[in-house]
Amino acid sequence: MLVQNLAVLVLAGFVGFAVISKVPNTLHTPLMSGTNAIHGIVLLGGLIVAGLGAQSALDKVLLVIAITFGTINVVGGFLVTDRMLGMFKDRPNRISPDRTKR
């Protein structure tokens, strides 16, 4: 089980390296924000640990906070990325005709 998971880990690492080869400078911040939303996957960890048994009151409180944090990371991350990218939307129409910088 561990060996299989390590294989998946290494392969996923190479996928991550490969995906980001050339990125225009203007997309650095949205891309950072997008990957930030994806590591909101930690929400799943909170769901599993909470769902499969949290007995003591302290565990329950900690897990509710963890799930809250994970949800903020996911929901906020994707929405903020979308808003950032919204700034790029009207750029081709407005800027390419008069050939302003970029």
Binding site: M1, L6, A12, I38, V49
Partner: peptide, 24 residues
């Protein structure tokens, strides 16, 4: 955390962000 919980979704998504985030 994915390795500890034996959860492939966490392993894959976490590692992709770890690797692409380093390049970025």
């Amino acid at each position: 955390m994915g390795l500890a919980l034996d959860n492939t979704a966490l392993i894959v998504a976490g590692m992709i962000v770890g690797a692409s985030g380093t390049i970025l």
